[in-house]
Design a protein around this nucleic acid. Structure first.
Lengths: 227, 227
DNA sequence: AGAAAGCAAGAGCACTGCTCTCTTTATGGC
DNA sequence: GCCATAAAGAGAGCAGTGCTCTTGCTTTCT
């Protein structure tokens, strides 16, 4: 083992350990993560943590990236186990919801209100689009295979704005379906956040999964995916 | 003026003044409201504020109630100016979005992630449902007047759970349309939050209103309201 | 008028993010 | 193998936070 790599490896392990403890704190104590408390749990001085993360915001950013990746991977994995586009769509949505229910504070970190003065850095936007791209890919598969009933193109300034970006990210999908992908993603996030943040106060308690499924299918149907 | 009422009136004015300053701080400094900073702005000791609000959470709760009322009133006012159900629906949605764009931090307070250990008290749930009830009333009008094309009832455990509450809140609406009302409300909140919290990173910049309108109409159409 | 209640101020506690200085330890060139 | 250098940790300290407690003062009620 080259001695030169030892420092770097120890540093990487320490960084990971800080994130792990921070996630545990997030899960138990909620969103107001205390750097000092994390340091205390690790048996080190709070100032030492600053050797790894320049600020509390930087630690949060790292956690946000991990969270995006975690939901993304959960959705992709669940989706991959299915065969038809609608099944993939539903599996992805339910996987995202399951992940959110299991890690509510991490969900709040990424899809709740941004932390006080926090400004999302560039590093976060790529992992952030992972779930949305999965939905888009599912629609693409349905569209190209003819399973999806495509109504007609729509017009509007937002469609013109969207078209160039759409062509580079989801090249085989008409602009309307790209708009539908984004809208569906927002709808799904909205449904999950609403459930998680207590918006459906007692109106549905037992079969929240069923209600979410209804909304998931509605979003799919609006894009023409009825399976 | 009875001297007995003087105290109460002064107290009410002071309470209002604290809320006003707190809202100003919220608008400029973001969500991490500092009670001490508010007190400083009012030229009083921080401990004096505790005569009016038992804790920071209680102040936040008061601001949350005001915010719910403000969106609710904006939506109701805009809706009342229209004549057809679809027009009312769209007006309510756009009014909510306009309010959110004008008061992003207050929107975050009510529809973003709940503050750390914050648990919504009972006082907030009535004003919180105001916008949703408006959507439900609009659908009721469309349904009873025959403008709405009602497909067929659906089944599901969540519908059974919903039915009794639905009957007491929106008595003239079939359970399916109550579910659609809630789903539409979640979708609209999701669309607004996503736009506000930066989820549509540069994909749509100029015509965000148009994209929101598309989503609003999609939610209406799913309930059978095409106007 | 006197007792009771309401209000404001200040000090203080325990906590936070963050910076600075000081000491120890590991690394890389000679 | 030695030694300057860079990295890492520890501790003190600053300015800020929510909240409590005690101390006075003022208004209200009896």
């Amino acid at each position: 083992m080259s001695a030169a790599n030892l420092r770097a490896r120890v540093r990487a392990e320490m960084t990971e350990e800080i994130k792990t403890v921070a996630k545990r704190h997030l899960a138990t104590d909620g969103a107001n993560l205390s750097l000092r408390a994390v340091a205390r749990d690790l048996g080190m001085a709070s100032s030492a943590v600053y050797r790894y993360f320049a600020s509390r915001d930087e630690l949060l950013t790292a956690l946000i990236i991990d969270a995006y990746d975690a939901v993304g991977e959960a959705a992709e994995r669940a989706s991959a186990e299915q065969s038809t586009p609608l099944e993939k769509w539903l599996a992805a949505g339910h996987a995202a919801r399951d992940w959110a229910l299991a890690s509510p504070h991490e969900w709040a970190l990424i899809y709740g209100s941004p932390v006080p003065g926090y400004q999302a850095p560039e590093d976060t936007i790529v992992p952030a689009t992972r779930v949305m791209l999965l939905l888009g890919a599912t629609l693409t598969e349905a569209y190209t295979s003819g399973v999806l009933v495509y109504r007609e193109p729509i017009t509007g300034r937002f469609i013109e704005e969207l078209a160039p970006i759409a062509a580079s990210i989801l090249p085989d999908l008409p602009a309307r379906l790209v708009a539908d992908t984004i809208a569906a993603f927002f709808q799904i996030c909205g449904a999950i956040s609403a459930e998680l943040f207590g918006q459906l106060n007692k109106s549905v308690e037992e079969d929240r999964r069923g209600f979410f499924d209804y909304q998931l299918r509605a979003a799919a149907a609006h894009a023409g995916l009825t399976g």
